[in-house]
């Protein structure tokens, strides 16, 4: 059974590259453009009882940002799913904020395919 990863980022480029790298590596990837849409995807998956293995989310997004998104996840049925936050080198504070909200790890943009795979594998049970 394929492991499922949800990528939430307002950048189409970033979503596409995550989609590409992880699909190539045999994962199933769901996408959402912001936190709100991310919650919608999770809700849909929950209704269909689909397990999600890792959630990767950007911090700085319109509508619902990554921090609020993480907080919302922690209230719901997916609270134990490892969440990785995407930050840039200059956003150390955001990284900490993400951790405080309950993120399991982080990935610094831009990243190389092997870095993405390394960090995702770290959290796939």
């Amino acid at each position: 059974m394929k492991k499922t990863v949800l990528i939430v980022d307002d950048s189409a480029t970033l979503r596409a590259s995550v989609q590409y790298v992880l699909t190539e590596a045999g994962y199933h990837v769901e996408e959402a453009v912001d936190g709100q849409k991310g919650l919608d995807v999770l809700e849909k998956l929950h209704i269909h009882d689909v397990k999600i293995d890792v959630i990767i989310t950007d911090i700085n997004m319109p509508n619902m940002d990554g921090i609020s998104f993480i907080r919302e996840i922690k209230k719901g049925p997916f609270k134990f799913v490892p969440i990785l936050v995407l930050t840039t080198e200059s956003e150390h504070a955001k990284k900490l904020e993400g951790k405080a909200a309950g993120a399991a790890g982080w990935l610094v943009k831009p990243f190389k395919p092997e870095q993405l795979l390394w960090v995702v594998k770290k959290f796939i049970r």
Binding site: I55, K74, K79, F80, V81, P82, I83, K99, G102, A103, A104, G105, K122, F123, R125
Partner: peptide, 8 residues
């Protein structure tokens, strides 16, 4: 709750 499993 942080999504980390020490077993991993």
């Amino acid at each position: 709750l942080t999504g980390t499993d020490p077993l991993m």
